[in-house]
Structure formats: C-alpha cells, structure tokens
C-alpha cells in the first residue's frame, strides 16, 4: 500500500482526492452511496455571510462532455452553516473545508472569521471566481488588485489553511496566483468554471436564466491541466488541481502537472462513488510504478 497522505499548508489530507464545492453538497447527501471517510477532503457548498436565493431556474444546461450552471451561490448563510450543518458533519472522519464567498473584502473576512471558530474546519477555500453573481465573485478573481484585496482582508482574520480558488476567465492565471501568494495565501486551487452559454434554437433564447453560466466537466480538462502546469511553475505554495476529472488517470495527470491534491466536481453527478475509485486508482498507479509516496509524482512531468 503506497503512502497517499498529502499536505496543503498545515492541513493534512489522508489522500489527495477532495470533492469540489457546489457539486457534493455537505457530503451527507452522498452518504448512502459512497464511504465519506475514504475521501481525502470534502469542500462544502459556497457559503456567504448572509443567506442568498441564487439565480432563477433554469440554472443548468447539458453540453457535449459537460454542463453549464448558473446556480449563483444559493445558500442559507454562514450562521445557518455553523448552527445546523456543522453539528451534522463534525464527527465524520475526513477534512471538511468551507468554500467562502462574498460581495466585498469585508464580507469575505467576516464569513472567514466565523469559520475560524469551528474546531473541525481546518481550512477554507476562498471563491474569488464564481462567474454567476453580479457583485463580487469573479469580479475579484480577474484582476491582481481585486484578488489581493480579498486575500489581504481574509488573511488578517483567518489563521488556518487558506486556499484561494482561481478563475480561468483571465488572460494570465499565473499572475493572479503570484498576487494571492504575495498576500499570504497558503495554497491556490484551480480552476473554477469557464464562462459559457447555450441557446435553445426552438425558443431562440438563451437556455440559462441569466444567459451565461460556468462550464464544467471533461470538456474543460485540457484547459484546467494547462493552467495547473503554468501556476505550478509560477508559485511556491501548493497547487490544488481540478476541472473535468472523471477517473484516476485524469487525476494522475493533474498530480504530474504539479497538483498536490485534486478536487472532483461534476463527475460526482455521473458516478456518486467516483472519488473512492480515483483514490484506489492512484494507489494502484503508485504501486505499479514503484513509488512509495504520492509526493514522489507531484510535478514530475516538469522534470526533464
């Protein structure tokens, strides 16, 4: 059995496979279908300081090898999470990470500070890359100054592992990664969804209620992998890779490109037990190639 443990800053994961925010609820929705304790980490639904209703229906469009969504961060707010969700997940033996979003650096920081109070939440993932909200979200993640302002505000109040989730909807993602590293982020995760759209030719109208949405699933994988490759070369902090991972081979590609851990999103809709299968697949790969630790293959594709 190979050693699958990996570290993201001070956070230790029992294996490098996590679930991506917004695709796995709070984990408990999947508990009948997959052993949650076999997953390295569960990144819960995007959480904001105040409750949000999200965008109107329709919020989803299927596309070739993927899907578009414009959920728009519907959630019951940070206080509801602390009171009603946290007690239900705190005894499950895996790392829970809260995906935090906001409309200003102050609201991000306030929400992050509330999460710092929860003993079992050892890290947060800052979502500065949601393409489906008018205020905040991606507006912060598409400029170095915007990204820095949020990370700076949160870093001042949040002592635990701080992962910043980057948007692919930029010209140079490495530049944004360097900007958040400079403000003290412990890690970057990428990618969030790519902005896209679909049109219903019979109705001659966009399919989604707000016209555009974020593309996810295997259709985005080559773009995500290229960005992980570039960011790995640009920063020293650990990189978490995601975008279109459907199986162990996809996940191993991300590890070889430089990711210390991966997240699986849309694939959970196709196979609710995909995460534990990917863990097993990574383990088999390490055994087959004679590596005793997953660490040994991280970034390996960059070496001559």
């Amino acid at each position: 059995m190979s050693q699958l443990t990996t570290n993201i800053g001070a956070l230790t994961l029992k294996n490098p496979v996590m679930t991506a925010s917004g695709t796995f609820g709070y984990g408990i929705e999947f508990e009948d279908l997959v052993d949650l304790t076999g997953i390295g980490g569960i990144i819960v639904k995007g959480t904001t300081l105040e409750p949000r209703q999200g965008n109107p229906y329709p919020r989803m469009a299927e596309t070739a090898h993927g899907m578009l969504n414009c959920v728009g961060l519907q959630n019951k707010g940070a206080d509801y999470f602390c009171r009603n969700i946290y007690p239900k997940i705190k005894d499950i033996d895996t790392q829970f990470i809260v995906n935090v979003s906001g409309s200003s650096p102050e609201t991000y920081a306030e929400c992050a500070a509330m999460m710092a109070e929860l003993e079992r939440i050892k890290g947060i993932e800052l979502n500065i890359s949601c393409p489906n909200v008018r205020q905040g979200g991606m507006a912060f993640g598409t400029s170095c100054s915007g990204a820095s302002s949020v990370v700076k505000a949160v870093r001042a109040v949040y002592p635990n592992t701080l992962i910043v989730k980057l948007s692919p909807n930029v010209t140079d993602i490495a530049e944004i990664a360097r900007a958040v590293e400079a403000e003290g982020a412990d890690s970057v995760s990428l990618i969030n969804t790519l902005m896209g759209m679909a049109i219903d030719v019979e109705r001659q109208r966009p399919v989604l209620s707000i016209n555009t949405g974020g593309l996810s699933g295997p259709a985005v994988k080559p773009v995500a992998l290229r960005m992980v490759w570039q960011v790995f070369e640009a920063v020293k902090i650990p990189v978490v890779g995601l975008g279109g991972i459907m199986n162990a081979t996809d996940a191993i590609e991300f590890l070889l490109a430089g990711a210390r851990a991966v997240e699986i999103g849309t694939a959970n809709f196709i196979d609710p037990a995909v995460t534990v299968k990917v863990v097993k697949g990574i383990n088999d790969y390490l055994d087959r190639h004679g590596y005793d630790r997953v660490e040994n293959i991280i970034g390996l594709a960059h070496k001559q």
Partner: peptide, 8 residues
C-alpha cells in the same frame, strides 16, 4: 441528490 441546486 440535493447537492448541486440546479433543479430548484
């Protein structure tokens, strides 16, 4: 499964 919030 109640996880993605697409079907509201």
């Amino acid at each position: 499964l109640g996880a993605c919030l697409c079907c509201v």
